[in-house]
Design a protein around this nucleic acid. Structure first.
Lengths: 144, 144
DNA sequence: CTTGACTCCGTAGTGGCTACAGGGTTCAGC
DNA sequence: GCTGAACCCTGTAGCCACTACGGAGTCAAG
């Protein structure tokens, strides 16, 4: 039967070889048997499991969450309530992060496009220094 | 003249005391004079500088960026081109992050609200296992 | 005199990798 | 048989921006 080296598994799964070893170290991927020379020899199940992990990471799940999901996936008869709860929590976390970043984006937009000659009248620096500067505001309004 | 302890500076600036010591260690905040007992004694300028740093962090700027911004703020006659370039880069980075998260959010939404009795028919696990499962899809469509 | 809240310093931990350093193995070509 | 490239191994340190801890000194109130 065909076995894969770490590098081949990396190519087949889309996960870097060093990351594969890292996953083994933290117990996310079981240690495979070794060849006589000490090289790891992976079977097809490793490709499957690593693909699972990669997709879960792409969905933003934490390593610890993924441990739970792998457990769940190993018990096809268990209710998927836990998995769904994880999805809900993840959705809420992502939504919150998006809201934060959108607020950040608006704040940055009010500071962008400043081409003042002097840093003293720069909108960004005004803001960071918490300065009220009517002269600067007027100038910005005029040039806008 | 009034001086502040680390804790008092923390309260005045909204930055944790341990973070203040961290900023001193990495050279972002200058080391203040010490009292006879070895305690740090901050003046009002530290409140200003730390406020600047805090606001810049809230805008998502990296520590290294903030070093540059502090330099810039110390030279009021320098053109603010560099600051504006930093804002533009930051805006683009935030926008990209938002786009990524929105894609993630959509992906998660198609997986949410699964209340299957068996993990084998859970939409999340199907996706993670990269399984095509017409039976599951039909069931989900029917219960949706 | 004790209690509890502060201060100090240095180090280690967080998450999820990534990048070495310093060695061994394999294989193709000469 | 030799060389060199490309792989493999282990273990450790680095990334970011903190945060938490251990162990010790200091200080004001009761």
């Amino acid at each position: 039967m065909a076995t894969l080296t770490t590098q081949q598994l990396a190519q087949a799964s889309g996960v870097h070889a060093e990351t594969i070893r890292y996953y083994e170290r933290i117990g996310l991927l079981p240690a495979p048997p070794r060849a006589a020379n000490g090289y790891r020899r992976y079977g097809a199940d490793a490709v499957t499991r690593l693909g699972f992990i990669r997709r879960a990471r792409e969905l933003g799940f934490a390593i610890e969450d993924i441990r739970g999901l792998l457990d769940l996936a190993a018990h096809p008869d268990a209710p998927c309530r836990d998995a769904d709860a994880l999805v809900q929590r993840q959705l809420e976390a992502v939504a919150a992060r998006i809201r934060d970043l959108q607020a950040l984006h608006s704040a940055l937009q009010t500071l962008a496009g400043c081409d003042s000659d002097a840093a003293a009248h720069c909108r960004l620096l005004e803001t960071l220094e918490n300065r009220a500067c009517p002269q600067c505001d007027a100038q910005h309004a005029a040039t806008a």
